[in-house]
């Protein structure tokens, strides 16, 4: 299952890459990519994963990485 999220507050493309790597290390994440120019975060997770739980985990990684990063589900 692919989840599409909006991500804002990343400083530079290089930071985006680092954050991407940290997120990829999460157990619940199968694949992850940050589209820096479009401010999008795409994650591939298990089909029956709990979306809100995933979001919480992503947020906690982001919080540890830098202040001011906001992640929310795209409409």
């Amino acid at each position: 299952m692919k989840l599409r999220l909006d991500i804002t507050g990343i400083d530079c493309p290089h930071c985006a890459k680092e954050l991407e790597q940290l997120m990829a290390d999460l157990d619940c994440i199968e694949d992850v990519a940050i589209n820096f120019p479009l401010s999008k975060l795409i994650v591939v997770v298990d089909d029956d994963a709990d979306e809100d739980e995933i979001l919480a985990q992503l947020l906690s990684v982001a919080k540890k990485f830098e202040d001011n990063i906001a992640i929310s589900f795209s409409d």
Binding site: K2, R4, D31, A33, I34, N35, L38, K40, I42, V44
Partner: peptide, 10 residues
Amino acid sequence: ALVEDSVLNK
């Protein structure tokens, strides 16, 4: 979604 997801295929 196609355009946004394109980052997965680097």
